[in-house]
Design a protein around this nucleic acid. Sequence first.
DNA 1: TATTTGCACTTGCAAAACGCAAGCAAATTT
DNA 2: AAATTTGCTTGCGTTTTGCAAGTGCAAATA
Lengths: 137, 137
Amino acid sequence: MDIKMRSDCPISCSLDIWGDKWSLLIVRDLMFSKQCTYGDFLKSDEKIATNILASRLQMLEMNGLITKQDHPESKAKVLYKLTQKGIDLLPIMIEINLWADKYFTLPAERKEILAEVKKDKEAFIKEKTIELQRHTN
Amino acid sequence: MDIKMRSDCPISCSLDIWGDKWSLLIVRDLMFSKQCTYGDFLKSDEKIATNILASRLQMLEMNGLITKQDHPESKAKVLYKLTQKGIDLLPIMIEINLWADKYFTLPAERKEILAEVKKDKEAFIKEKTIELQRHTN
DNA sequence: TATTTGCACTTGCAAAACGCAAGCAAATTT
DNA sequence: AAATTTGCTTGCGTTTTGCAAGTGCAAATA
């Protein structure tokens, strides 16, 4: 599995890494939970297949968006976390949420979070970024 | 070809529509050029296959992101344009560009546009949105 | 008017990616 | 010691992709 760039366009380069149906859902989970085990990802609503999850985690790690860490309480478990490069996807994730808010019916809990975002987007991003960075070792 | 929603998560719903390697490149072309013919899309650097292009255009049209119009000068040609729903992807596209700017080497011409974006993001979005809306009939 | 060219697709087919289920080794629990 | 949990890997059938060639209609050219 290697990285083939289709062009030097930033959109294209970005899509080459996370332009599929699953990668940003993994990033989403990590933004909500700060850290996830392999099993945590499998539990998400969208029901990703285990082999696809493994390949996406490998892809995201190889491209420096996430890191693997030993679980402090168990050698059987692995912790996945966002790197700074992954945390920096936050503004994109927020804009996707705002777009979806305009054109879909969102679950109530997401609407609440988005209300806070709409109040002061910059502040939300700054705060959330720091919060995520705190969990980065 | 129908729309299967994997969950009610806004990220997931969005990816269900344009979460692939090609859709946002079509949107990108339309944001730069305002309107494109089928052949214009084929000419882009990433060299999309013609059958994939046809299926993506159909998907994007079905989901209301783009519209087909008669070419004013020729019945043989078709014009594709962004709808408001498509234009509203602009903030997402901008954030992707800004992310890529931080982690990739961008072509010089893109850097110039991004410099303008960085000066005043809100203003850029507003201005560009109006510019795109002007081409919407 | 006949013919060639351009344009927007469609079709066929091989290769790759996906999705589901089962399997597996190491760690942990019972 | 046996059973369970965890993080994967493997097999395999289905779907999607990518490449090349083909089709039908409009428009330009001879």
